[in-house]
Design a protein around this nucleic acid. Structure first.
Lengths: 190, 190
DNA sequence: ACGTACATAACAAACGTTTGGTATGTACGA
DNA sequence: TCGTACATACCAAACGTTTGTTATGTACGT
């Protein structure tokens, strides 16, 4: 419901009827709406972390454990490549309004994205160690750039799903990753 | 006010008192809130387009007319490099919630970003003609990637302004642009 | 005199929150 | 083993406020 009506349409009553309960139940567990929203985002975040990680184009194969493939898989995991992922992303993008207006939620979000960035940094660093990415740029910077790219692509794809089907999203991502790896080869050749 | 309280806190009365008027004035010009919001976003968009374009690091110099510098300037123009730009971006990011929940606003947003992408495409194409960017990738794709990168960087910077000061934003953008230009040089050498 | 441009006042509906109440336990002294 | 005491879990209803919207009034240019 959040993914279709947005946070604007999120009311205690709507949540209550959605779960076949009363508003009294909600207020029994949460002192106010803010904490409910915060908790909901927390749960959603935890669920996102625990969901099975995406694997490269094929399906049966195990998830890539290191290097550029792992970075690619992690970024693909962010994109709205199917309707389910789009719905999830719609919720996150929608949460940015209320989060930016509420300092507590804003810091929670900042922490979340910071954590995700740290994970990406590991993948980047491992790719650098493998020589798949240049190491003349700090892994932190490459990871921040990659996260920005993925996040922005999410927004674009949500608003223009017809123009950004899954294939184009992955193609754009691959082109981006190629751009990261490209200069390295050049350096190696000197 | 939109930039601090978000679209969640946007009410007719708040808007009215903000402009020292009454709700009657608003309802006189707008049949309902939806059209008000749509109009507000339209005005904001138009104002963004007409505002003086950012220029390269220095100040007195004229805005770059073509090629990679123009692309860079256009992208810098998107980023929240100062508090004013951050406030404006906060509004846009906040609008995504209500826009994603309202088909009409969603298509308006899609059109806006599509238009911006078209402009970026021109800069990319001119940079390609100048040999500053490789032309083995369609300008449309490079522009879409660049816009995604900028958009995502906006989000990151809004939530973690301390981690993404203006210098880091421009550094990340320049690194991205270097990545785009990098592979070209390699190709040229063959 | 009449329509446009507003302000003021009132509207029903929906909001977050509070309240009073009812089950269903669980603990414990008699 | 029973009965009292108390906490937890939850519902239904109502609270006062705020919402978007509508209705009515008034000033004023033409």
């Amino acid at each position: 419901m959040l993914s279709s009506r947005g946070f604007e349409g999120l009311t205690l009553r709507a949540v209550a009827t959605e779960m076949g309960a009363s508003t009294g139940l909600l207020t029994h567990y949460f002192p106010n709406k803010r904490t409910l929203v915060a908790h909901a985002l927390d749960v959603l975040d935890r669920r996102s972390q625990e969901r099975p990680r995406r694997i490269a184009p094929g399906d049966g194969s195990p998830p890539p454990a290191a290097g550029l493939p792992r970075l690619r898989a992690a970024l693909l995991d962010i994109l709205p490549l199917d309707e389910a992922a789009a719905a999830g992303n719609r919720i996150w993008v929608g949460s940015w309004d209320v989060a930016l207006a509420d300092p507590e939620l804003a810091t929670a979000h900042a922490a979340r994205y910071g954590r995700a960035r740290a994970l990406l940094t590991e993948s980047v660093a491992s790719a650098q160690r493998l020589g798949e990415l240049p190491d003349d740029v700090a892994a932190e910077q490459l990871a921040a750039g990659a996260q920005a790219f993925a996040l922005g692509l999410v927004v674009q794809a949500l608003f223009a799903p017809a123009e950004f089907p899954a294939e184009r999203q992955t193609a754009l991502l691959d082109a981006y990753l190629a751009g990261l790896a490209g200069p390295a080869r050049e350096v190696e050749r000197l």
